[in-house]
Structures are given as C-alpha cells and as structure tokens.
C-alpha cells in the first residue's frame, strides 16, 4: 500500500536556511545542502524548499542552489516562493527540482496552473493555499497570509484541481505556529471533496498531531518545519510511532 508522507520544509533566503535550526550533528545549520542531505538520510519522504528572498537578483542564486540540492539528494523535492511565470518554472525544473509550489501567483493567474501541468505534467504542480477562518468561513489568503480575499478555501481548491494541479499544500494560518495540531476538520473536507492528494501544514507540535491529521484529517502527507529543525521530533521516531499506530510509513 501507499504510505503517508512526512515532509520537512526549509525556508531559504539568499541561498541560506533561515528560521532557527538546531542540529548538533550538522556543522553549519544555515547550509540548506547539509540539512537536505541530513533529512534525506534520516527518514524524510520528500523535502519542500520555500524561497523567501526579497529581490529578483538574489532569487537567481536559487537556481544554482536547486542544482546543488538535486545533485546530492535522492528523494523528491519541491521548490516554491516567488514563482510567477512558466519561465520561472522552467529554470527550476531544469535545475533539478521535481515539483514547484505556487500560491499567490496561482490565485492571480490561474492559467499558470494549467500551463505548468500541460508542459510538465500535473505531478510537478503543487498549489499551496493559505487560509484562515473569518466569520465562520475558511477564506483564502495571499502574499504569505498578509492579504485576505473573499475566496472560499473549498471552492478555490476544487478550481485548482480542475485546472490541473497535482497536489494541494494546505496551510491553516489559524493553526500555524500554535503547535496545537493540524486543521483536521478542514483537511478531511478537502480530502473528501477532491481526488488529488492533500498535504497538511500548520500546527504540528507533537507526534499525536501527525496521527490525528492522517486518521481524522485524512491527509496524504504532513509538512512541518520547526518541530523537525529544533529536533523536538525526530522523523524516524515519528515514523516508528505512526507505524505502531497502524499508519503505513516508509522505514529504510
């Protein structure tokens, strides 16, 4: 059977990992290559790199970083952040990324989703959606959550699927950073209403949260950053725990 996936997310700025990373066995915690290799060898099923560089100039370093990552790791990885055009996608995929993740640009220019899936296949088009509950309804947010829209999460997700997205990465802004667990109710609804895989993001704090997001939230994959970076949760321990709870996991 297909396993559920555990995906660490690395924020990249100007070619370096940002957000605190707290690994004793890594010489340079800011080096995304070293981190990527560490995760690839220690149970991660995939990796997501999110580029938060501010300027176009510094973004160019991303392509060369992607090339170095691709040369060193043997599991799939996704690159997101600031992708606005099919040309941006071209550069990243030709550098060795397996998938790209688009968010605000997909909302502002939905044809981009179709263009990517037509050119490279839907498998490499991940659409990230940030949302939070406003007056009882899940509303899509843009620009890293800074800009609210009137769009309903579930309507937008269905549209994204019909346009050719291969997976949806859903981050609940209400749960992100709380360490109180994932947005399982919304996740389960997404999973029921869509046929493409859903990646849960936002809220991971302890191992049981992952169990709940797979069992209750029906997520296909779970993404987290700080709990892995700070070694609060070791991925291999997490996978053993989930296996003991009858959730199929890949252990090498």
């Amino acid at each position: 059977m297909l396993t559920k996936r555990i995906i660490p997310c690395l924020d990249i700025k100007n070619g370096r990992t940002v957000k605190g990373v707290n690994f004793v066995d890594i010489k340079d915690a800011g080096d995304p290559l070293e981190l990527a290799e560490f995760y690839a060898k220690n149970g991660a099923d995939e990796l997501v790199f999110l580029d938060i560089s501010a300027t176009e100039e510094k973004r160019k370093t991303l392509a060369s970083l992607v090339k170095q990552i691709a040369s060193r790791i043997n599991i799939p990885f996704t690159v997101g952040g600031g992708i606005n055009s099919i040309e941006d996608v071209d550069v990243l995929l030709k550098s060795g990324a397996d998938k790209v993740s688009i968010n605000t640009s997909a909302y502002l220019n939905p044809e981009l989703i179709t263009a990517i899936s037509k050119r490279y296949g839907s498998q490499c088009c991940v659409v990230a959606i940030d949302a939070r509950v406003i007056e009882g309804e899940w509303k899509v947010h843009l620009v890293g959550g800074q800009k609210s829209t009137d769009a309903d999460l579930f309507e937008w997700a269905k549209k994204v699927e019909s346009l050719g997205a291969g997976e949806i990465l859903f981050t609940s802004m209400d749960h992100d950073g709380t360490k109180n667990g994932f947005a399982n109710e919304a996740l389960a609804k997404l999973s029921d209403e869509l046929s493409i895989p859903i990646i849960a993001s936002g809220g991971a704090g302890k191992m049981s949260h992952f169990k709940e997001t797979f069992n209750i939230g029906k997520a296909d994959a779970a993404l987290a950053a700080s709990v892995f970076h700070y070694k609060e949760i070791d991925i291999i321990d997490l996978k053993k725990y989930l296996l003991n709870n009858n959730i199929l996991m890949r252990l090498q």
Binding site: L2, K4, S195, I196
Partner: peptide, 10 residues
C-alpha cells in the same frame, strides 16, 4: 483512492 498515486509504495 486518490488519483494520481503520489508517494512511496512497496
């Protein structure tokens, strides 16, 4: 089942 199948299988 989700289609496409995405991920690790035995």
């Amino acid at each position: 089942l989700k289609i496409p199948q995405v991920g690790w299988n035995q």
